[in-house]
């Protein structure tokens, strides 16, 4: 077992601890902070697995902007999750356990971690690696695929982000005159 694999195992264990903590903590501020740590750990995991572009996006966008948005949301809503009344329902646990079991069963047919001959690593990925230098001449293959080969994909992504921004503005009434939202009663009467 080489060093990379050991780091991988440790990072995944930390991620697991963070996720379990999020399930049980009721103070929402702590939940958001642990979620930020979770994002940062996953960024480290991405670096370890050679996905440096993904890592810095996750660190900036996932751990940074997401956490700030969450804190803003907390400011405008509440800081604490209320304790549920009565017993915890058993149904979600059953769904989660059976789905998890099915997924684990499916992994038995998956190629080993890091297998260079796995189907995912054999065809189109190799083609991009070989063609980038000749066709695009950008040293970073991820950039070449993102902005050139799959440029329309990225354009679509921009449209999604634009739509989301528009949605947030409409929902919160930022930049609209007379921003006081109609109360529920009025909406019911209409």
């Amino acid at each position: 077992m080489d060093l990379g694999t050991s780091i991988d195992i440790v990072l995944l264990a930390f991620l697991l601890i963070c996720a379990v903590a999020i399930v049980f903590i009721r103070d929402l501020f702590s939940v958001v902070m642990v979620a930020g740590a979770y994002s940062l750990l996953s960024a480290m995991f991405f670096v370890n697995l050679d996905a440096v572009d993904v890592a810095f996006t996750e660190a900036a966008v996932g751990a940074g902007i997401s956490t700030v948005l969450m804190l803003g949301g907390l400011m405008l809503t509440s800081r604490r999750e209320k304790k549920p009344k009565g017993r915890q329902p058993i149904f979600p646990l059953l769904v989660v356990l059976s789905t998890g079991a099915a997924l684990v069963y499916a992994t038995f047919d998956m190629p080993d971690f890091g297998d260079p001959n796995s189907p995912a690593n054999s065809y189109v990925g190799i083609d991009y690696i070989e063609a980038t230098e000749k066709q695009i001449d950008v040293p970073n293959i991820v950039t070449a695929v993102l902005a050139s080969y799959r440029g329309y994909d990225t354009l679509g992504e921009t449209v999604v982000v634009f739509t989301a921004g528009l949605g947030v503005m409409v929902l919160l009434g930022i930049g609209f005159a007379g921003g006081a939202p109609a109360s529920r009663k009025e909406e019911d009467d209409a």
């Binding site: 697995l49 050679d50 996905a51 572009d53 993904v54 996006t57 996750e58 966008v61 996932g62 902007i65 997401s66 948005l69 969450m70 803003g72 949301g73 405008l76 809503t77 995912a120 690593n121 189109v124 990925g125 190799i126 991009y128 690696i129 293959i141 991820v142 695929v145 993102l146 799959r150 994909d153 990225t154 992504e157 999604v160 982000v161 739509t163 989301a164 921004g165 949605g167 947030v168 929902l171 919160l172 939202p181």
Partner: peptide, 30 residues
């Protein structure tokens, strides 16, 4: 080299993920 294609797909997904988070939070505030 590691396979660049999943990296590209996930780059897009991360940004879209933050967009959905923002919309979800806005709905929560409303």
């Amino acid at each position: 080299y590691s396979n660049p294609l999943p990296h590209v797909l996930i780059l897009t997904a991360i940004v879209v993920g933050v967009a959905t988070t923002a919309v979800g939070l806005a709905i929560t505030v409303r």
